[in-house]
Write a protein that binds this DNA or RNA. Sequence first.
DNA 1: CGACTCGTACGATAGGCATCGTAGTACGGG
DNA 2: CCCGTACTACGATGCCTATCGTACGAGTCG
Lengths: 116, 116
Amino acid sequence: MTSPVVSSRDLPHPAREEIRLESVLHALSDPMRLRIVRELAAVGDELSCSRFDLPVTKSTTTHHFRVLREAGVIRQIYRGTAKMNGLRRDDLDGLFPGLLDALLDAAARQAARVGV
Amino acid sequence: MTSPVVSSRDLPHPAREEIRLESVLHALSDPMRLRIVRELAAVGDELSCSRFDLPVTKSTTTHHFRVLREAGVIRQIYRGTAKMNGLRRDDLDGLFPGLLDALLDAAARQAARVGV
DNA sequence: CGACTCGTACGATAGGCATCGTAGTACGGG
DNA sequence: CCCGTACTACGATGCCTATCGTACGAGTCG
């Protein structure tokens, strides 16, 4: 059978059962990463890394996306030269029902309170 | 009027409006501190530090309680030689409705899944 | 007072991590 | 085939932090 590889480069993701709450919380405890996740949730679709306008260098951006991926918060796949990022909403909702929405709501409330 | 000081030693707590989501998530991203908060929520009352049987020294325990207090997750007051710890549920619920319950539920689910 | 318990303070240590810069790899288009 | 774009890898740096041990302070009880 022909190989089902979509892209030649694959990225390691934790399986749903391997996702740890502590790692998710740690990933979201960084302002830059929380911002990324909020933006992903707002768009509701996959976004390439370059679509984010973060006040850090590309190296640092790569680092943050890797932390989010290894924590199981986002899924990353290569599509051409772009690296698409999507929230693992189904996995997170399956493991921790209501948590992601509560977190996003909390972040939105704080943003509204403190000022974007 | 006579001074309303209950105990001679007072501890610094962030006001409700000063509590930051990132700090709360960071505080709860440590297994030891998540365990403390889960126990506090389960009991539903104040507990002295010594009521917790944690696999770390007393110095480290003190450190974890301080992180939780400075993040605004718990409130600590001295009562005699004991230092009582209580969840700041009203403040957290006021700032981030549903978040604490979602977090506690998520922690309980993971504990049930992985094994206490 | 004196002993004991509870918790703190301080220093040390080892590891983690957010950030950067530079050099490099993968892919797509002319 | 060469170039540009997108992202990575690696090393450095400075800061934060989880942990410990020891020495100390504050209360309580005999």
